[in-house]
Computed example of a mutant assay.
Amino acid sequence: MKADLSDLNAFVAVARAKGFRDGARAGGGSASGLSEAVRRLEAQLGVRLLNRTTRSVAVTEAGQRLLDRLGPALLEVETALDVVNSFRDRPAGTLRLNVPVSASRLILPTIVPPFLAAYPEIRLEVVAEESFVDVLAAGCDAGIRYDERLEQDMIAVPIGPRVQRFAAAAATAYLDRAGRPAHPRDLLGHACLLGRFASGALTTPWEFERDGEVVRVDPAGPLIVSVGGAIDLAVEAAIAGSGIISLFEGWLRPHLDSGALEPVLETWWQSFPGPFLYYPGRRLVPAPLRAFLDFIKAGHRA
């Protein structure tokens, strides 16, 4: 059975976006065109791939199985077609990156604008999320992760600062009211603002280190936010005096510099290695990704 490649691409776009409008927005087509393509594919296959309501689109079991196989396959097709890019004066095409929200906030802003200026024929698509996905299955060319999250068969290239720190901070008004912790264990008596990963796990224990001594504490507090999209809410709550927050130093630095937040236990802030851009080593590197790698290796690491 042969299916039209454009219809398969339409199905993948809608399934990943969980909607025809968002799929069209991501792919540059029209919602009606995607809808017709998916209907045509379902009619040809004789099976429903998507459950549609007036408000949402959900992938059926058959659709999910097809999506799991199509993602990597279509990426290989793109890679094969990308071979002709080597005959162009300038690389062109789409580069898809899967990154944590922290990287989209702290690493990419100083890299993306000059990269797009240097390669105007490349379209960059960035998916920021906290769940750890198979970049190929997700239809992405590469991702950004920290060392402990890298898979064994991936090629990793340093990106961003090579040393980062976790910082703890609170509003001066809160510390004047509740007292300033002198030791990490003092946090157990404070209101702490926490995060929750998509897996359901909390962003605890908080870890501190000084002179070789590592201290882990499990604080509690009045606010728990989802890691990624709601972290700014926790930052604003800390600024408003709701409690102590622990986060990437780079995320809190503007508020520390402005005085909106005051450092807490600064001599205990723990350092950790910076992130890596990673991609599968078992396939040809698409021209847009090769251009991005060369750009990073040339020193544009943030």
Rank of each mutant, 00 (worst) to 15 (best):
F115G: 02
L116F: 00
A117K: 14
A117P: 00
A118D: 04
A118N: 02
A118W: 04
Y119R: 11
E121I: 01
E121G: 12
E121W: 11
I122V: 15
R123D: 05
R123K: 08
R123Q: 05
L124D: 02
L124M: 13
E125Y: 03
V126D: 04
V126Y: 02
V127P: 00
V127Y: 10
V127E: 08
A128L: 03
E129H: 05
E129V: 00
E129W: 03
E129T: 01
E129I: 00
E130Q: 15
E130A: 14
S131I: 03
S131D: 09
S131L: 03
S131G: 02
F132K: 13
F132E: 13
F132V: 13
V133F: 15
D134P: 02
D134E: 08
V135K: 11
L136A: 15
G139T: 04
G139E: 02
D141V: 04
A142C: 09
A142V: 08
A142E: 09
G143Q: 09
I144S: 05
I144T: 03
I144V: 14
I144R: 07
I144A: 07
I144Y: 06
R145T: 12
R145L: 15
R145K: 13
R145P: 01
D147W: 11
D147K: 14
D147V: 09
D147Y: 11
E148T: 12
E148P: 00
L150I: 14
E151N: 01
E151C: 00
E151M: 02
E151S: 10
Q152L: 01
Q152E: 06
Q152M: 00
M154V: 05
M154T: 07
M154C: 03
I155L: 12
I155Y: 01
V157S: 12
P158G: 07
P158N: 09
I159H: 09
I159P: 07
G160F: 10
G160Y: 10
P161W: 12
P161V: 08
R162C: 04
V163E: 15
V163L: 08
Q164M: 15
Q164W: 08
R165A: 06
R165H: 15
F166V: 03
A167F: 14
A167T: 12
A168M: 04
A168L: 03
A169W: 07
A169G: 02
A170T: 09
A170F: 11
A171M: 03
T172Y: 01
T172K: 14
A173T: 09
Y174F: 14
Y174V: 03
L175E: 05
L175D: 04
L175F: 05
